[in-house]
Computed example of a mutant assay.
Amino acid sequence: MNVALWIIAGALAAVCLVGSSKMFVPQEKLAAMGSSAQWVLEFSPGTLKAIGAVGAVELLAAVGLILPAVLDITPVLVPLAATGLVLLFARAVTMRLRRGEKATIVGDLVYVALAAFVAWGRFGPMPFTG
């Protein structure tokens, strides 16, 4: 089970790293990436900065899922980061429902389930033991 938790935490960290890249890409470049990125044109620059702040949270979550356990420095941060991701992705599901993007909710629901599994596994029956 420990191996599965590591694999899922690593995959979630990779997803968060990719997601956090929106902090560094200008609105025009995001919109030019194709039809899946056209959503950026529907938001004001201030709202996009707030969304960029979520990118910073994703970056911190990616770090929190991996480094504390690898360095064995307060490994309790791993399930806390996973719990934060559950909340973040649940909020993403809510936003997609409000925007009528029902086709894209499945991915976020999968991320919610994976993050919940990591949080449960690290808090619960198989806490990180080194």
Rank of each mutant, 00 (worst) to 15 (best):
121 G>T: 10
8 I>D: 04
12 L>W: 04
65 L>P: 06
69 A>K: 11
80 L>H: 02
90 A>R: 06
8 I>A: 07
113 A>F: 04
65 L>V: 11
68 P>K: 07
20 S>P: 04
21 S>F: 06
111 Y>I: 10
2 N>P: 00
30 L>W: 03
9 A>G: 03
70 V>S: 11
28 E>N: 13
93 V>K: 06
74 T>F: 15
44 S>T: 15
59 L>K: 12
98 R>N: 11
49 K>H: 06
79 P>E: 00
2 N>A: 01
21 S>N: 03
43 F>N: 10
78 V>M: 09
1 M>K: 07
101 E>C: 00
3 V>N: 12
15 V>M: 04
11 A>E: 04
60 L>S: 12
73 I>H: 12
55 G>F: 14
108 D>E: 13
121 G>M: 02
9 A>M: 05
31 A>H: 09
17 L>A: 10
85 L>F: 09
124 G>F: 05
7 I>W: 04
75 P>N: 09
74 T>L: 13
23 M>T: 09
57 V>Y: 15
25 V>S: 08
29 K>E: 10
126 M>N: 14
69 A>Y: 08
15 V>G: 01
129 T>P: 00
95 M>G: 08
63 V>L: 15
70 V>C: 07
38 Q>R: 15
112 V>A: 05
128 F>L: 05
121 G>A: 07
86 V>G: 07
19 G>P: 05
41 L>V: 06
129 T>I: 05
13 A>Y: 03
126 M>D: 12
49 K>S: 10
1 M>Y: 06
61 A>L: 11
48 L>Q: 03
100 G>K: 00
69 A>L: 06
57 V>W: 15
75 P>Q: 00
12 L>H: 01
1 M>C: 01
128 F>Q: 04
11 A>T: 11
127 P>S: 00
58 E>G: 03
79 P>F: 04
16 C>W: 01
88 L>T: 15
70 V>Y: 13
18 V>I: 14
65 L>H: 12
78 V>F: 03
72 D>W: 13
45 P>E: 02
126 M>A: 14
85 L>E: 06
62 A>P: 05
81 A>F: 06
64 G>Y: 05
53 A>D: 12
55 G>W: 11
97 L>W: 08
46 G>H: 13
30 L>C: 00
87 L>A: 15
95 M>S: 11
116 A>C: 12
83 T>Y: 06
122 R>V: 00
22 K>H: 13
